[in-house]
Nucleic acid binder design. Structure first.
Lengths: 222, 222
DNA sequence: CGACGGGTTGATTGTCCTCAAAGCCTGTGG
DNA sequence: CCACAGGCTTTGAGGACAATCAACCCGTCG
């Protein structure tokens, strides 16, 4: 059968790997967060940097009336909470039960001064976040609902280590808030893609999706 | 009367200033681009980093059918084209007649290895771009047309050195493609804000806008 | 002058949102 | 073991906001 929980991906960044090797004292501890638990809040002082060991995390901003925009999902292996600012710019919550590794931010800053490789890695990670945000602006500003959902599935397919199957850790509402849509629109788009023959639903909870025809999805993705 | 062309802002980053002082050989030349001229294209090798001396630049991505998302406007003093990747991720064009200073990217990279201050500055600039993109995702994903236009005006008010007046260098279509709207919707929103008493039009071309009541705009901005 | 670029405004359309109902699965407690 | 509640999802009906299509205005420039 198919794994329900995401495992350590093959493409996990060597950044923290290298970091732990060279700077073992940076890694302070590992922590478990229950589904829905807040890891840090927007505007809180940024004391730590985090790496997802297992599970998934959502980073989001809120408007005053509760509208929510999820800026990114962090999956196993991903590093998040690296702000380079005094305060967090997002709220981070566990999407499902999640294990997280913590690194003290102060040590990273200090390290970056003395260690040009570490400095370079910080820049690479920040650039990678920037690239994702830039692509997501295009999606949010200019793509249709169907195109957004197709792009989302392809992104998750790439990032989750599914063996042909995308096992989404997040609910429809999370997907909607990531894509700038409503949960109903996401659901309708998925149904449409199913009818179109681009995907199949596997599990009983509709979160395991087999991408039957990636070509059809890619065509929608532009 | 009011200046029609943006002048060098007081808050221009000291980053490149310091850079030119310490690494004068990095600055290769200054260049003029006519209104509408392309400075570089998406996926072109990133050879240079740029700084706007006067004028304005738009950075955008296109979908295959021509839909356009402007990721950022670069105004006098701003640095752009700093990708940290081999290739540019946006196309950059002059919004109006624009003067631009060029810095060879290779020299920057080399400098960052030996010079930790320079490395730090690269990170700061990238982080600043990231923060802007993160805020813009919230706008594109979750704000209404009126809220987007209000936020846009406040951003331009902050960034342009207007003496009470925002002298927009870009046309309605550019604003629309920045805000994920159509030019008609932008125009309607501006008319609505005018009727609402939040702003006045000054010039004959409707691009000089006086923010009569920033409070009203800020309220819409959340 | 007449063409053109840029802007506004009106009428209509369409995509997505909102509101609502129902189904399914899981877990819990009698 | 079954009843039932709650979370999550799907689907339908109607409505709203922004897009589209279109007309017109204004200023500039050849």
């Amino acid at each position: 059968m198919f794994a329900r929980v995401n495992v350590r991906p093959a493409n996990a960044p060597s950044i923290l790997g290298g970091l732990t090797a060279q700077h073992a004292d940076f890694v302070t501890s590992e922590f478990h967060y229950r589904k829905g638990a807040e890891i840090y809040g927007e505007k809180e002082p940024a004391e730590y940097v985090y790496q997802v060991v297992s599970g998934a995390v959502r980073s989001y901003k809120l408007l005053s009336d509760g509208r929510r925009q999820i800026g990114a999902f962090h999956l196993a292996g991903d590093i998040f909470g690296l702000e380079n600012t005094e305060h967090h710019r997002f709220t981070a919550e566990a999407v499902v039960d999640t294990n997280v590794r913590l690194i003290k931010r102060m040590s990273l800053e200090r390290g970056a001064y003395s260690d040009s490789v570490l400095a370079r890695n910080l820049l690479v990670m920040t650039t990678s976040n920037l690239r994702h945000a830039e692509d997501h602006m295009l999606l949010l500003g200019r793509k249709t609902a169907l195109e957004r959902v197709a792009a989302f599935l392809l992104e998750m397919d790439r990032r989750l280590t599914g063996v042909g199957v995308v096992a989404l850790p997040m609910c429809r509402r999370d997907i909607a808030d990531y894509l700038g849509l409503t949960l109903e629109t996401v659901s309708r788009a998925l149904s449409k893609l199913h009818a179109y023959g681009a995907l199949d639903f596997l599990g009983s909870n509709q979160r395991e999706i087999m991408l039957v025809d990636r070509g059809k999805l890619a065509q929608l993705d532009n």
